[in-house]
Design a binder for these strands. Structure first.
Lengths: 337, 337
DNA sequence: TTGAAAGCGCTAACAT
DNA sequence: ATGTTAGCGCTTTCAA
């Protein structure tokens, strides 16, 4: 079943079929619909290898996800896949560990799969021009930006929330409820990732409200996973330093933190309020429902694809999109006393 | 940079270069190493599109996931991706809704991407030979088998748990704790999916222990998602029919059910025990930890790939692998009073 | 053991 | 608006 069969079946030439298939303008409506009918009837599917060969490029978009197992990414991946295939492209997914370098992974993927473009999901923030030089295709950072790197703004695209501002907002919500002793649970204060950025937001909120930063209330887990978050929260409890509220940099970690607080005999929110950022489905079903700032996961994925394809198809240059979060007022935050 | 350049650079014909590149036997050592040297020097990388075109096949394995957003699948997808790329193949992921037909989706993917093989994750159980006829590549069903269909056992492969037996085991755990009024939360009793199978296990366990089946205690949600599970549990509570334990067919649904029970004023496990099947990470962090039968998600993904590649590379024929679950004794099950 | 040449299915000039 | 045709880079007969 080739383009020839379709051509013969609809009584036109192969090039006409090709034109129809590629939405070229100069085809009469009559012929167009006739060809389309044949395509339907014959269940014709174009041979991508042949297409790619003659166009000397593939229709493949790479998605490198750093931090396997983070449920926040699941919805984004889904949205990206949808958008990519809807646009007639193919997505190849590559998941790497937090320790791995997503730029290297992306570059290698780009070569071996002849990628047209690349989406980086959950990466680091400290790229230098030298590092990205290896990447000779358009790429967009999804859910993060190059805040700590020296990349020129027009060397890449991004779609993300304002991590620091949103973290500040989250902490401020706690402050407004009268909390002063606010702990924070994060991966690291200096990992050049979303963790560090949100930590800055935490510090900023405290500073703006005249609350001194207490290093004892900063719990670094060294990882984004739930087990580490659980342990980190336990350590926070063990040191007997009082805190009435906890800001967690990610929903998944917050779920584990809630468990640790509970196991440590703290009631939420009576003894300890907790707020996070991300908004994964699952945290709707914690007891109480986690109060969190929801990142619009689906639209972030879609937007990342839109930006990327605009670059790939040269409709537009690079751009940076900031999306905002929506507060989900769960039951995990209460006024102090 | 094509095979021609390599040929000219090493002073041989393109066909000889091709032979070297494909490890064909009849090439002299001298020529072989000369060609290889040129390849190195010129940084030549074969054009996969051209290769695929002429061989009319790719190195692509398809993964069709039915039921987007089920966290149980995340770990499996990860394992599949790892194994596939480790074996030098490319995975293309396609996620579809529960309403969609994974066989159709798989067949269309197979043609458009020239798949070598296909893995179906979370599909239906009622394929007929006619339906699978469209699929002319090896495929393996992951996490389910064709229990309700008429497929010949050697027409496909599978890796799954014994859903009915495991469900029976789960319910039996409740019975052993003295529970008699055991409700069940599931998608449907007759959807030809894992839901129906596990429902049979539930019925079987009740029957074996002389407990009459009470239709009022069978809550069908019509979906696998958490919102539906929450609603379903609420309806169960509203009808005022007493039950002291709840068997939920999936961890993700159980998390939502726990929330609904809590919101309905039931303490877990004091007022109601709950047990499920799947073993997602998240359910470790519910309060109390969910008692569940863990499916070995990673090894199921790896095994699925192993089986598939054995078929693709004709090392072995089809086979069916049954894996067993491991009980995670959380705190959600307690003896009756 | 090596080379010449015929396609694989498609797109895009170029011609009509 | 539609058809003819020359490749895209590679593998694989078939000949030498």
């Amino acid at each position: 079943m080739t383009i020839r069969d379709v051509a013969e079946h609809s009584g036109v030439s192969v090039s006409t079929v090709s034109r129809v298939l590629n939405n070229h303008p100069d085809v009469s409506e009559a012929v167009r619909s006739r060809v389309l009918a044949s395509v339907q009837e014959l269940h014709y599917v174009p041979n991508n290898s042949a297409r790619d060969l003659v166009r000397s490029q593939s229709d493949t978009i790479g998605l490198v996800v750093r931090g396997v197992g983070n449920p926040f990414f699941s919805a984004v991946i889904r949205a990206v896949e949808q958008s990519v295939s809807q646009a007639g492209y193919t997505m190849v997914l590559h998941q790497i560990n937090t320790e791995d370098n997503e730029l290297l992974a992306g570059a290698s993927l780009a070569r071996s799969k002849k990628l047209r473009g690349l989406i980086l999901l959950g990466g680091c923030f400290d790229y230098t021009p030298e590092q990205t030089a290896a990447l000779d295709i358009p790429f967009v950072c999804c859910s993060f930006t190059n805040s700590f790197g020296s990349l020129n703004k027009d060397a890449y695209s991004s779609v993300s929330i304002d991590d620091q501002a949103e973290a500040r907002r989250a902490v401020e919500i706690l402050v407004r409820q009268g909390h002063q002793k606010i702990a924070v649970l994060l991966d690291s204060t200096h990992d050049h990732s979303v963790s560090e950025l949100r930590y800055h937001g935490y510090c900023q909120a405290l500073a703006e409200h005249g609350i001194p930063l207490d290093p004892d209330l900063v719990a670094e887990t060294g990882d984004f996973d739930m087990a580490a978050a659980y342990e980190g929260t336990c350590r926070l409890l063990e040191q007997k330093k009082e805190f009435t509220a906890l800001f967690v940099i990610a929903d998944s970690m917050a779920v584990a933190a809630m468990k640790a607080l509970h196991d440590g005999g703290r009631r939420i929110p009576e003894d300890c309020s907790i707020i996070a950022i991300d908004g994964i489905d699952m945290s709707t079903y914690t007891v109480p429902t986690l109060t969190t700032l929801i990142q619009p996961q689906e639209s972030m994925g879609e937007e990342a694809v839109r930006i990327l394809l605009d670059m790939v198809e040269e409709r537009a240059g690079n751009r940076h999109v900031r999306v905002s979060t929506a507060l989900r007022a769960g039951g995990s935050v209460a006024p102090l006393n």
